[in-house]
Design a binder for these strands. Structure first.
Lengths: 228, 228
DNA sequence: CTCCTTCCGCTTACGGCGTAAGTCGCTGAG
DNA sequence: CTCAGCGACTTACGCCGTAAGCGGAAGGAG
């Protein structure tokens, strides 16, 4: 059915057929990410990835030990795109802002995959560069020891929490758009007066502005903290 | 095999056997939560829940439309335990702290289930009471309109992000304890000097203190924000 | 007391999942 | 030219969620 460059059994090559690119770890991960972005996380299966690549499911196991490894590979790929620290000598506030924005930009490039990455626990290895960078920034800001770690943790918590909230909000708004009727019933103005009052702002979030609002708030607070 | 109170077919009741409690929505959800806490999220299946209750998998469908509904039920149950606002007249800072602590306490009561709840998107209904409460607190603090929403979002982001980080950290530390060898290789002091320098603090986190550190930082920052 | 509706747990079956095991054509080294 | 081994293949197993339909027990109606 397709010509091959090397190895493999059937289907035997057909002269006029296009050459099929060789299967590699990278191509598998890239295809997995595409698939998640296009059809959602629950559509990801070894069989589907294989189909997408024109290959049998088990062929993937020649390049990847299992599905878990595919998920790890996705995390690697997505978090790997932002490890650079372009200006280690700049003001720590700028560095912090830049790191947060880089993380968020990566999330927005692959939103559905990022959800998968964030909800997997065992990937501390992949986050290590980000942790290192944030710790360096905390030290540059004048914090040491436990306080530096706490500053780092607080900052990371805000960034990750915001990304989860954004994904959540986007999904929620999509769902609300589909079934306006039931929403009106569910959100009783008596039970949720403030939610109804702020409906306009809740329904039309300015993600960028909201992110920077909290980010600046946090950086300002860290700045005016006593040094250790 | 087991005596029944009402209805059902085989196995026909055996006189001496213990009475089996009737299947209900609540018992199904409770069993699902127990199962997740005991064996992890990937152990949760309709068949396993059934087995745990001494019942066939399909019997669950008389009380629950499907697995998604079970997951929703878990979210309801866990987030439902903290809706109270015991002192609506208290200082907004205390109310905010109390809300954050209540959320976190619920998370620690069912840590693995909370991970599942947090990584599901479509459950805005269940979070509505928390959002309402936090919006009320923001208004009490003197914020209106978009700013109130931004304060609420920032606050929620921090809380949720911290919970995810805690779950992550716990899993990471467990894993590190198992394979100290590979960790030493992976964490190169040249590449991650700050991580290695803060190893003691990173490996022995004080979750409560860390949470309050960021919480107070954030509340203080919100307090000194100009009002709208 | 009898009948009959309704409830509810049961069995069976289907398509899809991750993956262990084994087959075999092609390629490049000797 | 031979042949080792790489890499894609097929097959099969035990899971999964769930659609469809069965049948016994409980309890109201006559």
């Amino acid at each position: 059915m397709a010509k091959q460059t090397r190895g493999g059994t059937l289907p035997t090559e057909v002269p006029g057929a296009p050459v099929r690119a060789p299967l590699t770890h990278d191509r598998i991960i890239a295809t997995a990410i595409e698939l998640i972005e296009r059809e959602g996380a629950q559509a990801l299966s070894m069989r589907r990835i294989g189909a997408e690549l024109g290959v049998a499911a088990m062929s993937l196991y020649n390049h990847v030990p299992g599905k878990e490894a595919v998920l790890d590979g996705i995390a690697d790929r997505i978090l790997g795109g932002l490890e650079v620290d372009p200006a280690p000598e700049a003001d720590w506030r700028d560095r912090a802002r830049r790191l947060a924005h880089a993380f968020r930009a990566a999330a927005h490039r692959h939103p559905r995959s990022m959800s998968v990455v964030l909800s997997r626990s065992m990937i501390w290895t992949r986050r290590l560069p980000v942790i290192e960078q944030m710790l360096a920034i905390a030290e540059q800001a004048g914090f040491r020891g436990r306080t530096a770690v706490q500053v780092m943790r607080t900052f990371m918590a805000y960034v990750i929490g915001t990304l989860m909230n954004e994904a959540n909000t986007a999904a929620t708004l999509r769902q609300i758009a589909e079934e306006r009727r039931r929403v009106a019933e569910l959100v009783d103005p008596k039970a949720f007066p403030h939610v109804v009052g702020a409906a306009r702002e809740l329904l039309h979030p300015d993600y960028d502005a909201d992110f920077d609002f909290g980010l600046d708030l946090l950086i300002g607070a860290i700045e005016s903290l006593p040094r250790t």
